[in-house]
Design a protein around this nucleic acid. Structure first.
Lengths: 153, 153
DNA sequence: TGGGTTTATATGGGCGTCAATGGGTATATG
DNA sequence: CATATACCCATTGACGCCCATATAAACCCA
């Protein structure tokens, strides 16, 4: 299963290290499980991450936006210029850069949220609130979309 | 017959393990009978589960949404981060995560309800009450539906 | 059809392995 | 030289794997 699934709460030690959930490590391509990329989420105060292979996918999606629009500039700038790559040590831990932790408000603990082809890293309490809000929006406002997911093939 | 049908009451041991009814195990695709997915039911205080195959189907559909939209996030968060995958051991048992047990009020015993393409896990007493209520609703309020189901072609 | 035997399922428990976490030390980088 | 990061080792608890047993269902044979 090459998807990032489930939610995990891991601690950040004195050295700033945090374990990438083993489940997520297994979702990375076997070829390169020692490296991931991180960047600020555009839509929420969280950090998004994935394997380096997904860079191409991200580029493609941005390319589908109107090249002359403000969005294009904003996205290209926000994402590409801010992407960092970090190494995963033999115990499966990595370091979250200070500016990213600041952006997400993360201090001593991090919530890892599977998002399918990528994952998000949140400050735990914020993640709970966000999950709650998303769930309610889905329940109350988006019946037609929900149908898309619940109908049998 | 690859459908989840019937009702079973199984015990949860000290280690938190519970047997997936063998009938349900047989309803899983032969390809992958060692893994199932679990998630909070949207409509009731119960846990829903099914084979992992359904997950890939959902992933595909979500991937078709506009990546930068709010919808995408709502779905990804509500679904991928809320879903849990658990392994089934050689005796056919698995672990129910604590937060899911809490959500369903399950402690030492679990009721498995076949629902066709998926199944539900309830706290036994609640399941009895729910079955009763569902049955009465069906009888009293949904005569038209009943007609549809029972009329001979 | 009855009685005995096998098989499968649910359940219990021991134990090794792995994941998450903590810390010491070497190495690198400026 | 000072700080940050990589590597190595240790600890703890959870989980997976294996084996055991009891009850129930299936089977077989006379």
């Amino acid at each position: 299963m090459d998807l990032f699934i489930s939610k995990y709460f891991n601690k950040i030690d004195k050295k700033g290290r945090v374990s990438l959930p083993s489940n997520f490590r297994n979702a990375l391509p076997k070829a390169n499980r020692n490296e991931i990329i991180l960047y600020k989420s555009i839509k929420s105060p969280s950090i998004e991450g994935c394997g380096v292979g997904r860079l191409k996918e991200i580029a493609k999606r941005i390319n589908n936006l109107d090249f002359f629009s403000e969005d294009y500039d904003d996205f290209a700038t926000s994402i590409f210029s801010e992407i960092v790559t970090t190494n995963i040590d033999k115990e499966g831990r990595f370091l979250i850069p200070e500016d990213l932790k600041l952006y997400a408000g993360i201090k001593t603990e991090a919530a890892f949220l599977g998002q399918g082809h990528f994952f998000q890293i949140w400050e735990p309490k914020k993640s709970l609130k966000n999950t709650e809000v998303s769930r309610r929006r889905l329940l109350e406002e988006k019946k037609s979309l929900r149908m898309m997911l619940t109908q049998q093939k």
